[in-house]
Amino acid sequence: MPRPHTGTQEASTVTPDPAPVSAPPDPTPDPVCGPVPSPAPLLAELPREARDVPAAFARRFNSGDADAVQEMYAPDAVFVPRGGAPAATPDAIRRANAGFLGLGLPITVRPRQIHVAGDTALLVVDWELDGEVDGARVRGTATDVARRGGDGRWRYVIDSPFGGCRP
């Protein structure tokens, strides 16, 4: 028997797909079929479901397009780096992400937990850059908060890429 609606929203937990999201296919032209289509259509839409935020971020990050990455953030978002002051403006967030994008390495994300309460979501995501920097792997566990905007799209309000890691 269905429960009567009480006027409050219940929290929900989404079991994420365990398959990681990694780099898009190699855009090298095929000698027979010609150029591979641009990934631009993948970037056109921001996620409509909280569970799609990590994959949308990975696609945008792997495109190398700093503007596409920046669109994943709400105007009032905060980026929390590992050590140092949080980036609390769009320009500061862009600069913080530029360090990662500048490495030229694709990212793979694996959502561990996604919890949704109304228009707010907590995302715990394991991530790794696919390559080494100075002989070391670059990886972490992000603890992020996303919010559904008035347009129905989800964006980061807190991006803490090392939030689940030891200081």
Rank of each mutant, 00 (worst) to 15 (best):
residue 2 P to I: 15
residue 3 R to V: 15
residue 7 G to A: 03
residue 7 G to L: 05
residue 7 G to S: 04
residue 8 T to M: 07
residue 9 Q to N: 05
residue 10 E to S: 08
residue 10 E to W: 05
residue 10 E to Y: 04
residue 13 T to N: 01
residue 14 V to Y: 04
residue 14 V to K: 02
residue 17 D to M: 11
residue 17 D to V: 11
residue 19 A to M: 14
residue 23 A to P: 07
residue 23 A to H: 13
residue 24 P to E: 07
residue 26 D to H: 08
residue 27 P to N: 03
residue 27 P to E: 03
residue 28 T to D: 04
residue 28 T to A: 14
residue 32 V to L: 14
residue 35 P to R: 08
residue 35 P to W: 09
residue 36 V to L: 06
residue 37 P to R: 06
residue 38 S to C: 08
residue 38 S to Q: 13
residue 38 S to D: 15
residue 42 L to F: 10
residue 44 A to E: 15
residue 45 E to Y: 00
residue 49 E to S: 14
residue 50 A to H: 07
residue 52 D to F: 10
residue 53 V to L: 07
residue 54 P to S: 06
residue 58 A to W: 08
residue 60 R to F: 02
residue 61 F to Y: 10
residue 61 F to Q: 00
residue 62 N to R: 02
residue 65 D to C: 08
residue 65 D to Y: 13
residue 66 A to F: 02
residue 68 A to N: 01
residue 70 Q to K: 05
residue 70 Q to Y: 03
residue 71 E to D: 12
residue 71 E to P: 09
residue 73 Y to D: 05
residue 75 P to K: 01
residue 76 D to V: 12
residue 77 A to P: 12
residue 77 A to W: 07
residue 82 R to I: 12
residue 86 P to V: 01
residue 87 A to L: 06
residue 90 P to L: 09
residue 91 D to R: 15
residue 93 I to P: 04
residue 94 R to E: 04
residue 98 A to Q: 11
residue 98 A to E: 14
residue 98 A to S: 14
residue 102 G to Y: 09
residue 103 L to D: 02
residue 105 L to D: 01
residue 106 P to H: 09
residue 106 P to K: 01
residue 110 R to D: 00
residue 110 R to W: 03
residue 111 P to A: 03
residue 111 P to M: 03
residue 112 R to P: 06
residue 115 H to E: 07
residue 118 G to C: 02
residue 119 D to M: 00
residue 119 D to P: 05
residue 119 D to Q: 07
residue 121 A to F: 10
residue 121 A to V: 09
residue 123 L to C: 11
residue 123 L to W: 01
residue 124 V to W: 09
residue 126 D to C: 03
residue 126 D to S: 11
residue 127 W to L: 11
residue 127 W to Y: 08
residue 130 D to M: 15
residue 132 E to I: 10
residue 135 G to T: 09
residue 138 V to C: 00
residue 143 T to D: 06
residue 153 R to I: 09
residue 155 R to E: 00
residue 156 Y to D: 01
residue 158 I to K: 00
residue 162 F to G: 02
residue 163 G to M: 13
residue 165 C to P: 11
residue 165 C to A: 09
